[in-house]
Simulated assay, not measured.
Amino acid sequence: MKILVVDDNPAILDSLSALLSAQGYFINTACHGLAASEKLQNDCYDLIIVDHLMPIMNGIQLTKHIRQHEIYSEKPVIFMTTQGRKTVKNICDTSLFSAIIDKPIDEQNLLKLINDLLSPNTRLQSL
Score class of each variant (00 low, 15 high):
residue 1 M to W: 06
residue 2 K to R: 15
residue 3 I to T: 02
residue 3 I to S: 08
residue 4 L to N: 10
residue 9 N to C: 08
residue 11 A to Q: 09
residue 11 A to L: 05
residue 16 L to S: 00
residue 17 S to C: 07
residue 18 A to Q: 09
residue 20 L to D: 01
residue 21 S to A: 15
residue 21 S to W: 04
residue 23 Q to V: 00
residue 25 Y to S: 02
residue 26 F to Y: 13
residue 27 I to T: 12
residue 28 N to E: 11
residue 40 L to N: 07
residue 41 Q to I: 11
residue 41 Q to S: 13
residue 46 D to I: 03
residue 47 L to R: 07
residue 48 I to N: 04
residue 49 I to K: 04
residue 51 D to N: 11
residue 54 M to R: 09
residue 55 P to G: 06
residue 59 G to A: 04
residue 60 I to E: 01
residue 63 T to H: 10
residue 65 H to I: 01
residue 66 I to Y: 11
residue 66 I to R: 02
residue 70 E to L: 15
residue 71 I to Y: 10
residue 72 Y to M: 14
residue 73 S to R: 13
residue 79 F to E: 03
residue 79 F to V: 13
residue 79 F to R: 10
residue 81 T to Q: 14
residue 82 T to E: 09
residue 83 Q to I: 08
residue 83 Q to M: 12
residue 88 V to E: 01
residue 88 V to W: 05
residue 88 V to F: 08
residue 89 K to T: 15
residue 91 I to T: 12
residue 91 I to P: 08
residue 92 C to A: 03
residue 94 T to I: 14
residue 95 S to K: 10
residue 96 L to G: 05
residue 97 F to W: 07
residue 99 A to D: 14
residue 102 D to V: 05
residue 105 I to H: 04
residue 107 E to N: 13
residue 112 K to A: 12
residue 113 L to M: 15
residue 116 D to R: 12
residue 117 L to A: 08
residue 122 T to G: 01
residue 126 S to H: 14
residue 126 S to C: 02
residue 127 L to K: 11
